Amino acid sequence: MADTDFEILDERFRRCVKLSARVERLYGECRWAEGPAYFPAHRSLVWSDIPNDRMLRWDETSGAVGVFRAPSNYSNGNTIDREWRLVTAEHGGRRITRTEHDGSMTVIADRWQGKRLNSPNDLVVAADGAIWFTDPAYGIDSNYEGIQADSEIGACHVYRIDPDGRVEIVADDFVRPNGLAFSPDGRRLFVVDSGASHVENGPRHIRAFDVDGARLTGGDVFATCTSGSFDGFRFDEAGRLWAGAADGVHCYAPDGALIGKIRVPERVANVCFGGPKRNRLFICATTSLYAVLLPVNGAR
Rank of each mutant, 00 (worst) to 15 (best):
D5P: 02
S197N: 14
V264N: 02
A2Q: 15
G114K: 08
P276L: 11
P40G: 04
N76A: 10
L293P: 00
T106R: 14
C251H: 03
R54E: 14
V65F: 10
G218N: 14
F235A: 00
F39T: 05
G103Q: 10
D3V: 09
I153H: 06
S151G: 12
G195E: 01
V17F: 06
A2V: 14
Y290V: 02
A181D: 11
H205Q: 14
L289P: 00
V192W: 05
D247F: 00
G202R: 01
D102N: 15
D53W: 00
P295I: 11
P136Y: 04
P36Y: 05
R54S: 11
N118L: 13
T97F: 00
S72G: 12
E90A: 15
A21T: 14
H157K: 09
V23S: 02
S229E: 15
H42T: 12
V65L: 08
S75N: 10
A41G: 14
K277R: 15
N52G: 10
R215C: 12
V268K: 01
N78L: 13
E29Q: 13
R94A: 12
A214N: 07
T4K: 14
V17A: 09
I131W: 00
T217V: 09
H157F: 13
F230R: 04
G129V: 08
I80W: 13
V125K: 05
L45D: 02
K261D: 14
H250D: 12
E145V: 10
T99P: 01
A171W: 02
S48R: 06
H198C: 13
V167A: 07
I153E: 03
N270K: 12
A64H: 10
E168I: 04
R176T: 07
C284Q: 02
F6E: 01
T134L: 01
L117S: 02
L123G: 04
P276I: 11
Y38H: 09
V87C: 04
N118G: 07
D102L: 11
N121C: 06
G275S: 13
T4F: 08
